[in-house]
């Protein structure tokens, strides 16, 4: 029964995506072209990486609001390590990613060791990590990166944007892990019933710690890609990206209460949001109108899925 309703939501979402693509293709000649769609994939990558990690976190019944701040912190640190401290750029990026991953690990420790609810823990670190980014940067941006660095964010490999390869690889690996490994099942088990999972001998704390660390890592990698794409670092980078990611995850059918959700759903959710954003702006709708529509789509999608699910589970 559960599987059935899952399939339902994703089918429904995929239909919505196809409808949106068809309608948008008729609105503008420039929408349904290979180069435009690939470019949208480029713009989708940072949110995408974060949203995939967030799918796991939300599937355990948790949430990570600090990802946008971790992104900002890692972006700033990449610039500072390279420009002010003088590390070679690859090492600077790796060091910054390491710090960002540790920031995620810190979230995990606060949540698992101290028992702070994830929403509060990451709300606090959202302020803390963004604050660190602002304090370290002192509102100065770092520019002028070497040319090879832009391969990551602005160039193509085999005709496809570099970062889109990364996103696709991560999506495939993550969906296999979540759907087919014991560890993935553990994630669902924790989200369905944490107490029962603990009594069943699952390592609840270790799994959660790993997930928040991974979430930090995903945000850190997204940060380096972001810097490479826009050629600069600023401390306000990625602010609000947590809400975009959560929207994609929830739209993708992951239950905010945990226990349910797939990476595929999240990816379809992401594509739908990006298609709407881009297609509508090409069709002449202003960005603000698009934001409104995404909000409405989010509510309607969950409403529709609730109605289907209830009619499906009644008997």
């Amino acid at each position: 029964m559960k599987l059935k309703s899952l399939i339902r939501h994703e089918t429904f979402l995929a239909l919505m995506l196809v409808t949106a693509l068809i309608v948008l293709a008729f609105q503008s000649d420039r929408f349904f072209t290979v180069s435009n769609l690939l470019n949208q994939g480029r713009l989708m990558t940072e949110v995408g990486l974060i949203a995939i990690a967030m799918t796991f976190v939300i599937a355990t019944g948790g949430i990570d609001l600090s990802v946008g701040s971790i992104l900002g912190l890692v972006a700033i640190l990449t610039g500072v390590f390279w420009n002010n401290i003088g590390l070679p750029l690859p090492f600077a990026a790796i060091a910054a990613i390491f710090v960002g991953t540790m920031a995620g690990f810190g979230n995990g420790i606060i949540i698992t060791r101290f028992g702070v609810p994830p929403l509060i823990a990451t709300l606090a670190t959202l302020a803390l990590y963004r604050g660190l980014a602002e304090g370290i940067s002192q509102a100065r941006s770092v520019r002028g990166y070497p040319d090879w660095f832009y391969v990551l964010g602005q160039r193509d490999v085999l005709g496809v944007p570099t970062q889109l390869w990364i996103l696709m690889a991560v999506a495939v690996i993550a969906s296999v892990i979540l759907a087919y490994t014991t560890w993935g099942r553990t994630v669902y088990a924790i989200g369905s019933n944490e107490v029962a999972s603990r009594f069943s001998g699952l390592s609840v704390e270790k799994t959660k710690l790993a997930l928040y660390t991974l979430s930090g890592f995903a945000a850190s990698v997204a940060a380096v890609i972001f810097v490479s794409r826009v050629s600069t670092t600023r401390s306000d980078m990625g602010s609000g990206i947590e809400l975009d990611a959560i929207t994609a995850v929830v739209l993708g059918g992951t239950s905010i209460y945990g226990g349910r959700g797939t990476v595929l759903g999240t990816v379809i959710g992401l594509c739908l949001i990006q298609a709407l954003k881009n297609g509508l702006s090409l069709a002449g709708v202003k960005g603000d109108g698009t934001i409104m529509l995404i909000g409405a789509v989010l509510i309607l999608a969950i409403l529709a899925s609730n109605i289907f699910e209830r009619s499906g589970t009644r008997n």
Binding site: I246, I291, M292, I294, G295, A296
Partner: peptide, 10 residues
């Protein structure tokens, strides 16, 4: 979350 987008965009 949806209402936030709608209000902000509006």
């Amino acid at each position: 979350l949806g209402a936030m987008s709608i209000l902000r965009g509006g």
